[in-house]
Simulated assay, not measured.
Amino acid sequence: MSVLSFTPLHPITLHSHAHFSPSPFPMSILRRFNLNFTNHRLRRRFATVSAAVRQDTTVWTPAPLSEIEPAAESLFHVTIDVSDAPDLATSHTRAGQYLQLKVANSPKPSFLAIASPPKLAISRGVFEFLVKSVAGSTAEALCALKKGDVVEITQAMGNGFDISRIDPPEKFGTVLVFATGSGISPIRSLIESGFGAGKRSDVRVYYGARNLQRMAYQDRFKDWESSGVKIVPVLSQPDDTWTGESGFVQAAFKRAKEISNPLSTGAVLCGQKEMAEEVTSILVADGVSAEKILKNF
């Protein structure tokens, strides 16, 4: 980098008591530098304040827990009463949406996908969740609460699953759904919201868990299948009595494949990032349009 040099046009006489620190930069450049530096600091401070203001605009509403009980190993079924907050209930319009939740004395909010269908919030005034208790997290603090305890939540947010991209059912007869662990939560909302499964020729849900003890919603499988949804449980660490699919859901699907027409096939994914990426690659390689592969994030 070149350095500017400055040579005085006239000799400068220094007195013995004068203090002079020579600078290679003209005063105009130094003044501009100082001004720019000051402006930069002001901009940074303004950006920080603006960010804090934006965060403060989040509206938190207190709501009591109306139910909390084990759903499976390390998983809890949590119901929050929003009957006194109709604006919260009506904010849930599509399966796959989520909200933020705060627990007293917890360091930061947690994002939770809503497991219940939107119609439940309207008819009964509740949000239901499937929550995985992770050590040291807000979710763990939530799962330790009891019925009647109060939490703070936001309105539902996110675009959810845009089912219009795989409608009408007669045109997209095959819908493949993939979920792992607590990722089945928004999938439950989708199934129970209804997406024309009975009018489609092939709707399969590949649901992965470590074992049956960690697989939630088994009591709902029969009702789901009666609506036209075939459930394919996939266990990564089954015991010796298990005769169903084992390994990871992407591997189980790859073994089965059975896509009759990629152009009339849609998919819904929720769960581990690696699973979502691998399933997407398999589907796209088989001719399924990436636009027809739905995610809620």
Rank of each mutant, 00 (worst) to 15 (best):
V131M: 00
A72L: 00
I80Y: 11
E128P: 07
T79G: 10
A115R: 09
T93L: 07
P109N: 13
G96D: 08
N105Q: 09
L99N: 14
I114G: 01
N105I: 05
F129M: 04
Q100T: 05
S123P: 06
V126T: 12
I122V: 13
G96Y: 13
S116N: 08
F127V: 02
H92E: 03
A104C: 08
I122Y: 11
I122Q: 15
A95N: 08
E73S: 11
R94C: 01
A113H: 05
V78I: 09
V126W: 06
P117Q: 04
K102Q: 13
S123V: 11
Q100D: 12
A72P: 00
A95W: 07
K108V: 06
S110R: 15
A113M: 07
L88Y: 02
V78H: 02
Q97F: 12
V103S: 12
P86W: 01
R94P: 00
S83W: 02
A85N: 12
T90P: 01
V131L: 00
S116P: 12
I80A: 07
L99E: 06
D81T: 12
T79W: 08
S110Q: 15
G125Y: 09
S91H: 10
A121C: 13
L101S: 06
A104S: 15
P118K: 12
F76E: 07
L101R: 14
L99R: 08
E73A: 06
A85E: 08
L75P: 02
I122G: 09
L130S: 00
N105P: 03
I114H: 01
P118S: 07
L99Q: 08
E128D: 15
N105F: 09
E73Q: 12
D81H: 11
D81S: 14
Y98A: 07
L99T: 13
L130C: 02
K102H: 05
V82G: 05
S116C: 13
E128C: 11
P118V: 08
Q97H: 12
K132G: 06
V131G: 00
F111R: 14
A113I: 03
L130I: 01
K132T: 02
F111N: 08
F129Y: 13
V126F: 08
F129H: 10
F76D: 06
D81F: 14
H77N: 10
R94M: 01
L99D: 06
V131Y: 00
L101Y: 11
K102V: 04
S83P: 02
P118G: 04
A95V: 11
S106A: 15
V82W: 05
T90D: 03
P109S: 09
R124I: 03
H77C: 06
P118L: 04
V82A: 06
S116I: 09
Y98W: 13
S83A: 10
S91R: 12
D81N: 15
K119Y: 10
S106Y: 02
Y98N: 13
N105M: 10
A85D: 08
P117L: 03
A72T: 00
L130D: 00
I114N: 01
L101I: 10
I80T: 08
T79Y: 11
E73G: 01
P118F: 10
L112P: 05
P118W: 12
L120I: 10
A113L: 11
S83Q: 05
A89Q: 03
L130H: 00
A104D: 15
G96Q: 10
L112E: 03
Q97T: 11
L75W: 03
S110C: 15
L112S: 04
A95R: 09
V82E: 01
S110L: 15
L75A: 07
